[in-house]
Design a protein around this nucleic acid. Structure first.
Lengths: 115, 115
DNA sequence: TTCGTTCCCATAGATGCGCTAGGGATACAC
DNA sequence: GTGTATCCCTAGCGCATCTATGGGAACGAA
């Protein structure tokens, strides 16, 4: 009974908004679909919990980076569909370059020490 | 030290512990020196605020990943010197591989959409 | 028809990291 | 003295993320 599943990191903090915005460049999607999309593309490494996803979507919408309408999924279920706004596209570009800038910096620190 | 700069992201959340541990593979260092080291190697992209640094060092020490002793810096100032423990080295390896795993996953999601 | 499952939305509570904004002490240069 | 740089530390807040729920609607199986 004691086997507690090792809770491995499932998301790199600070990257979720970018991942959501990027997903929406593939087209309009509902929340559940975005989470699935990220999980599948990442080959099950990244996993977006629903308690993380929906607050994030609300944040992004409040910031005007995405917009939404009610509709129906392919399965005929009620769903809220999200799309990128112009500001969202802009923000995505900013996030991507900022992220890669940070990665480069981290790479310099993490570079193997010369012997 | 520095003049006040526009507050942009200055650290990728979830990477600080790894950066500290990695810094200590270069040798024993005091807190202030670790912050300087990270900032310099990253070419001023990463900046570790003191209010971020010291709590982090305490966390790491509580976890047994680093250990410390009081000593004196080159400038003859009282300073607490940190060093990696064996567990810290192990944790660093884990962090590095976990981090690169996440990066790969993020890369797959962020890959440019095929035209 | 009832039941279980999948899909889809949403919130509350806790946690923990990182930032802001302090405080304090010592060494050195002026 | 005054100022500046080095070095340590804490409190308090914001906020992103996780865990743990709850509910409702569509569908297939029994």
């Amino acid at each position: 009974m004691g086997t507690k599943k090792p809770s491995r990191e499932v998301l790199l903090p600070g990257t979720l908004d970018m991942l959501i915005l990027k997903s929406l460049t593939r087209g309009v999607m509902h929340g559940y679909g975005i989470a699935e999309h990220i999980q599948q593309l990442s080959e099950d490494v990244l996993k977006v919990e629903e308690g993380t996803l929906y607050p994030a979507l609300q944040r992004l919408q409040l910031q005007g980076l995405i917009a939404s309408d009610w509709g129906h999924s392919l399965n005929n279920r009620r769903a809220r569909f999200y799309r990128l706004t112009r500001a969202g596209r802009k923000q995505l570009e900013t996030s991507e370059s900022s992220f890669s800038r940070l990665l480069t910096a981290i790479g310099r620190v993490m570079k193997p020490v010369k012997a």
